[in-house]
Design a protein around this nucleic acid. Structure first.
Length: 469
RNA sequence: GGCGGCUUAGCCAAGUGGUAAGGCAGAGGUCUGCAAAACCUCUAUACUCCGGUUCGAAUCCGGAAGCCGCCUCCA
């Protein structure tokens, strides 16, 4: 089967064909840095990470752009409320954002453009839209005239005439030609405080949508392969991006639009008023393992609404422990030979893994393939008693490949480090067991357990692992 | 009001016409000094409900209920 993605634009699964053979250029919606990102945001970033990693696994050269929205109503409000500069204000959240990406093992994109560093590109684009008569000036602001873009509403399936008007009436509404016209450039007013740019368009700041059009085209070209984001962005944000970009260039903007569903927390939509609103740090402060959080966010198909629960994270950690144990058990397996059984297991697992993910990133069959390999190889191991070096390599290389996509199935490195004191105690216990002094050996085992070290007496000797919370 | 999505075991979650993947939890067993890990066995006559199409439906069609989302700056 060929690699297939569900394209929001056509509302169906389509075979993925990049513009340039073997290369993918994609724009993935990033954070607005006005606050710490919450787990709903991270669901989107994890989905984008899975997409990126799988494309690489499939041999594509990926150029990914993730924007940092550091100029909008909320960042302006935030910095003015604190009485600090916009840059000082957003710097806090940019830094936190990258720390969180690290914790969740989200791979870095090639570019993280900041809106404030691309004012010129946005101004240039607005000028083109003005020249073409697609944009118009009203007061000190500039708006996009959507009646000039016949395809407006195509992505979201919105019919302009049917839009419920007056749902959220903006104060500036009255000065637009049509209620659905949106701002490309916002003239300065007092509420903006010190935040403004003096440009050919006047004193003010860009509208929200224009940054994504300007920055994506700067780094990826006028037409690129994939654009992603949360479902809430379909309308109006992505709809407006299409209108701006295609209005300016006259060319198709994006070939494949992909959107992730939202998540709920403990069965309810996540909202501050429900007291179920969590940043990643909130979760880590509760002692949750970051990789268990990653597993939970990763293991439900991206277009399926996900119900995030603390029980789910707990279950996820148990699953991960099994996968991590498998990795070390294979690494440490004694010598033996299955006579070809491993090769067929590995081949079947790979086929199932790829078959699942090729189908619009369906991770469930992919994880099933991983667990099938665990089960199958464990059976071989218990029946044959060992693996040949070639078999070990086969499994571990396949595992590395799977992990390059999933990013959770290898034991975290910090869990493989041990200090001398612990090492000494483990040796003392081994000696005690040799003397059949089980009272002493159990005492040491309990003591180590209290320190978070779990011991296992196996055929090839005593093994230890770090207890994960 | 308009548009869209979801409902599968205690929990999570695949499966979109041929008789229910996978994970977690639970019960019993093998192994072990005891454990742990691993393995074995068991755990949905059944997929929200009611109709219909079909030789055959969790899967298609119609209806109902519940939950969720978008409808101008929220992933």
């Amino acid at each position: 089967m060929a690699l297939t993605f569900f394209n929001t634009f056509t509302r169906r699964k389509e075979e993925f064909k990049p513009i340039i053979d073997g290369e993918v250029r994609m724009y993935t919606c990033g954070p607005t840095v006005y606050d710490f990102a919450h787990i709903g945001n991270f669901r989107a970033y994890i989905f984008e990470d899975l997409l990126r990693r799988y494309l690489i696994y499939r041999g594509f050269k990926v150029t990914q752009v993730m924007n940092l929205t550091d100029i909008d109503d909320k960042t302006i409000r935030g910095c003015n409320a604190k009485g600090i500069s916009l840059n000082d204000y957003t710097a806090i959240y940019k830094k936190a954002f990258f720390e969180d990406l690290d914790a969740l093992k989200i791979q870095s994109a090639e570019h993280y453009p900041e809106a404030t560093a691309h004012i010129k590109e946005m101004v240039d684009m607005v000028k083109i839209l003005l020249e073409k008569g697609i944009a118009y000036t009203m007061g000190s602001s500039i708006y996009y005239r959507i009646t000039e873009f016949p395809n407006y509403g195509r992505l979201s399936g919105m019919n302009l005439a049917e839009l419920k008007t007056g749902v959220r009436i903006d104060v500036e509404e009255y000065e637009k030609e049509t209620a659905a016209d949106f701002a490309l450039w916002k003239g300065w007013d007092e509420s903006d405080g010190k935040v403004f740019w003096e440009t050919e368009l006047g004193k003010g700041r860009p509208g929200w949508h224009i940054e994504c059009s300007a920055m994506s085209m700067k780094y990826l070209g006028q037409t690129f392969d994939i654009h992603t984001g949360g479902v809430d962005n379909i309308f109006p944000h992505h709809e407006n991006e299409i209108a701006q970009s295609e209005g300016a260039t006259g060319k198709r903007f994006v070939n494949y639009w992909m959107h992730n569903a939202h998540l709920m927390v403990e069965g309810r939509k996540m909202a501050k008023s429900f007291n179920n609103f969590y940043t990643l740090k909130d979760l880590l402060n509760r002692g949750l393992h970051p990789l268990a959080v990653r597993y939970v966010l990763l293991s439900t198909h991206y277009r399926q609404q996900l119900n995030f629960t603390f029980d789910g994270v707990k279950a996820a950690l148990a699953s991960l422990q099994r996968l991590w144990d498998f990795h070390t058990n294979i690494t440490d397996a004694p010598h033996g030979d299955s006579g070809g059984r491993i090769s067929s297991l590995v081949r079947e697992a790979r086929e199932k893994f790829i078959g699942g993910l090729d189908d619009d990133l369906n991770v469930s069959p992919a994880f099933a393939a991983v667990f099938d390999l665990v089960k199958g190889a464990n059976i071989v191991l218990s029946e044959v008693g060992g693996l040949s070096p070639a078999e070990k390599r086969e499994i571990l290389e396949t595992w590395d490949g799977f992990d390059s996509v999933l990013g959770v199935i290898k034991p975290p490195e910090e869990s493989l480090i041990i200090d001398e004191e612990i090492e000494r105690l483990i040796q003392e216990r081994i000696d005690a067991r040799k003397r059949k002094d089980y009272a002493e050996s159990d005492r040491i085992r309990d003591h180590l357990s209290g320190k978070g070290i779990i011991l296992e007496d196996t055929k090839i000797g005593t093994k230890w692992k770090r207890k994960v919370k």
